[in-house]
Design a protein around this nucleic acid. Structure first.
Lengths: 195, 195
DNA sequence: CTTAAAAGTCAACAATCGTTGACAAAAGAG
DNA sequence: CTCTTTTGTCAACGATTGTTGACTTTTAAG
């Protein structure tokens, strides 16, 4: 037995990381059902049995691969005036960064109840509180729902369905168009726009 | 042989309709992959072989079940001022009517390339032209993309993911909140809201 | 009634998938 | 080196799935 206590073998950690990376890439691209243990193993250049050895089951592997943390910044009430801009910039950063969490969830949540529940949880525990921190508590849930519908719709069209006009949008286009809408939703502004 | 020429057997038409109805219900609820031929057959109270007999394959059955027509009304330029309201009311009517087309597509388009392509086609050929009929041609695709992102996001959250705050919204709530946003997107209004 | 076509039933095939257990190679402690 | 633990390989099981072909029942024309 090794003398190491807190740190396990480096080799196994590397393979474990390879499996997880392969799983995340495939889940994000093809969804839960269209990704097989054998696919993950092939991409990680190992034996399918090892995938089960390191993670106990496909469900467990998916749960690990789908861990998602939006890392939303805590907002002060004084940030209310810029919340739309802040939100859309933050999400673009998260979505187009290295994290494939949102794509994984979106690809699977429509036909996998575990993923769907995880999705509801993410928006209840991460988006909800941020919206609640500006404006009245009583309408917070509704405002968070509207914000979520726009954010998820954008991610769906841009990264999953890949609707050409939505893919073609530049980041600044998105900030300019979607930011004000999130602002309106987040603060419950009901007025009609005036050009 | 029967004397009827243009009209085929009534019995076979009824079974065919039963199969299609069962398929639509199951595809809408569980998506393409989670719906098996055997499930459809069981719901239609017939033998699995009959499903293949009436439709040649599962793909063919899905294609028939996923036929979708938004039936968007042609708009006149004079309708521009009400296009947001018109759009959201029309989609609510379609979505919450008997047609399960959108739910079927949303449940499957994230992990089924055929469904995803169908989705792109629907928004290119049905939503795009309506948006193009108001405002400038050059920005029509972008405006249609933004409108689509909000509409699909709303449908996703309300009918598929079932985010509680979005499910709780009344139709009039949706019209009041989302209508103006669609208006803004459809006409490319860039101004910040003023309460 | 006779009979041929239509409608429906049954069992099975071939492929795929998650998962398992037996066994071999490799690595490190003594 | 010896031996134990870790790491990896291989083949296979059992379940599920789309699909097929042979067979039986029903239907209705002649």
């Amino acid at each position: 037995m090794k003398a190491k206590i807190a740190v396990k073998s480096t080799k196994s950690d590397r393979t474990r990381a390879q499996i997880l990376a392969a799983a995340q890439a495939l889940f994000a691209e093809h969804g839960y059902q269209n990704t097989t243990i054998r696919d993950v193993a092939a991409r990680a250049s190992i034996d399918p049995a090892m995938v089960i050895r390191y993670f106990q089951s496909k469900d467990e592997l998916f749960a690990r691969a789908a861990a998602i943390d939006l890392r939303l910044p805590a907002l002060k009430a004084s940030d209310a005036g810029r919340i739309g801009d802040t939100l859309i910039r933050h999400f673009l950063e998260v979505w187009e960064g290295s994290g494939k969490g949102m794509a994984i969830m979106l690809r699977s949540a429509t036909s996998n109840e575990f993923a769907a529940e995880k999705m509801r949880e993410v928006f209840a525990k991460q988006v909800g509180p941020v919206i609640a921190s500006v404006g009245s508590k009583s309408s917070a849930a509704r405002r968070a729902g509207l914000v979520s519908s726009q954010l998820l719709g954008l991610a769906l069209c841009r990264y999953v369905l890949k609707l050409p006009p939505v893919v073609a949008l530049s980041r600044e286009d998105i900030v300019a168009h979607v930011g004000p809408v999130l602002q309106r939703y987040a603060l419950d502004e009901m007025s009609v726009n005036r050009p």
